[in-house]
Nucleic acid binder design. Structure first.
Length: 423
RNA sequence: GUGGCUGUAGCUCAAUCGGUUAGAGCGCUGGACUGUGGCUCCAGAGGUUGCGGGUUCGAUUCCCGUCAGCCACCCCA
């Protein structure tokens, strides 16, 4: 034994690769239905494109090293900087709004847990060049239709939407939270449901232990879930409301919950944010995204509003396995050819090759063995039928076609077998 | 990077109080079965008990370390 794959990296055995391919196929199919074009970039990038926005500490979470030319490089942990560069470079030439998607393999150097490895594949869908909530609704609808395409409905998954601008407006105007206090206060909000004690400590520090200010903000946070209706009446909630309305018009309303406790990456998003969760929340977020209107300008110097999401294959794969929503493996073979006697081996080779030339998928036993052995292998391979070639059949220019599921047999002339039988 | 829990065959699990050569089912290979798979029966292969050290006459079992997995933290770009 040579040990296993590196921690957090996966070997894909055929069964696992089949699931991955199924996931990719659904992603591509829905993305294309929505008019998105696929792009890709290099898996290895200059380190700076990740540090310039997030600072040096992010290096700890990257696969970063120096290449033989002395360049500081990193395996990509996210797709957005690459996207920003690509779009920025051709910003004048591309017709807006741009609808692009990619399925990059991403890497991060972190301790792994369930649903969180050191590499994963992540669908990225982004609409670039449209600032209105119609674009937000469009990418969310795509994310939900992907769930539907996997057979997952509102009973299984939910989309939770927030708009940080609504929360921020309330915090600033009603609770007099200063601009430089916002980030720690939002961090406290992010923790509120998972770890109230930590959240309260964070909040107290953020507001400089001013009891008179801490208490109302605490009340505000604890009432956020039920107090959504009131917040949604504020002027700042207009984009969010339009987005929800559009999703409703598309018939996706049952999936949608407005939840102002959603915060997500603080350095990144500028408006509407959303997350897709399994009902019951036993897994991590399936998908997360939102609006990041300032990022392309920061990276590429071009002012283009963006909204998009990332959806990883790991949590999604766990969910599909948990819910038994894996696809049935389609038969790999059209037929398995069986040679009755040693004399039949060469005719089987000839027939196999003629069928393969026609695009028919066939296999035969590489070692001549008893018929029962050959049929056993045929069944194990999942072949829907066996084509049996023996001296008697050859004398009559026919073969016996055995339906391996039904156990029935019929005699078929070789000429017919080679002329449309498998079509 | 921090803390907690768990590591026995490909998989699911046994192994008495620390006691002989670590077992079973499934799976895999071969045979019973010479022109017909799934059933049944027989046999076989497969283990450094994660790894290293310690205690002991003797360690899968107890102790320490380490690695890996899981969980929480950090982070979620």
């Amino acid at each position: 034994m040579q040990g296993k794959a590196l921690p957090g990296f996966r070997d894909f055995y055929p069964e696992e690769l089949a699931l991955r391919n199924h996931i990719f196929a659904v992603w591509r199919s829905v993305a294309r239905r929505y008019g998105f074009e696929e792009y890709d970039g290099p898996p290895l990038e200059p380190l700076e494109i990740y540090t310039q926005k997030s600072g040096e500490e992010i290096v700890e979470q990257l696969y970063a090293f120096e290449d033989k030319g002395g360049r500081k490089v990193a395996l990509r942990p996210e797709m957005t900087p690459t996207l920003a560069r690509m779009v920025g470079e051709r910003a004048q030439a591309l017709k807006k709004p741009i609808r692009w998607f990619a399925i990059p393999q991403l890497f991060r150097y972190e301790r792994q847990q369930r649903g969180r490895l050191r590499e994963h594949f992540q669908l990225n869908m982004d609409v670039i060049g449209e600032a209105g909530p119609a674009a937000d609704a469009e990418v969310m609808a795509a994310a939900l239709d992907i769930m539907r395409a996997f057979g997952l409905g509102p009973a299984e998954v939910r989309l939770r939407i927030s708009d940080r601008r609504v929360v921020v407006a309330k915090l600033r105007h009603s609770h007099h939270v200063a601009a430089d206090e916002l980030v720690p206060v939002l961090a406290a909000l992010d923790k509120w449901e998972r770890a109230p004690a930590d959240s309260e400590r964070l909040l107290t520090d953020a507001l400089r232990a001013d009891r008179a200010r801490v208490r109302p903000v605490l009340e505000f946070m604890s009432g956020l879930r039920d107090g959504a209706a009131e917040l949604r009446e504020s002027a700042a909630a207009e984009p969010l409301n339009e987005c929800v309305q559009r999703l409703g018009a598309m018939g996706l309303g049952p999936f949608v919950e407005v939840d102002f406790t959603i915060v997500r990456g603080l350095a990144y998003y500028t408006g509407i944010v959303f997350e897709l969760f399994d009902q019951g929340r036993s897994l991590r977020a399936i998908c997360g995204g939102g609006r990041y209107d300032d990022l392309i300008k920061a990276i590429a110097g071009v002012d283009l509003p963006c909204v998009g999401f990332g959806m990883g294959d790991v949590v999604l794969g766990e969910l599909l396995k948990d819910r038994a929503k894996q696809p049935e493996a389609p038969a790999q073979l059209d037929a398995f050819l069986v040679a009755v006697s040693g004399e039949d081996v060469e005719p089987v080779l000839k027939l196999a090759h003629e069928l393969r030339d026609q695009g028919v998928a066939v296999e035969y036993g590489l070692r001549h063995a008893a018929i029962r052995k050959q049929l056993e292998l045929a069944a194990a391979r999942g072949a829907p039928r066996a084509v049996i070639v023996g001296p008697d059949e050859r004398a009559a220019s026919e073969v016996v076609v055995r339906d391996l599921n039904a156990g029935t047999e019929e005699k078929v002339p070789v000429a017919r077998l080679l002329n449309g039988f498998f079509r």
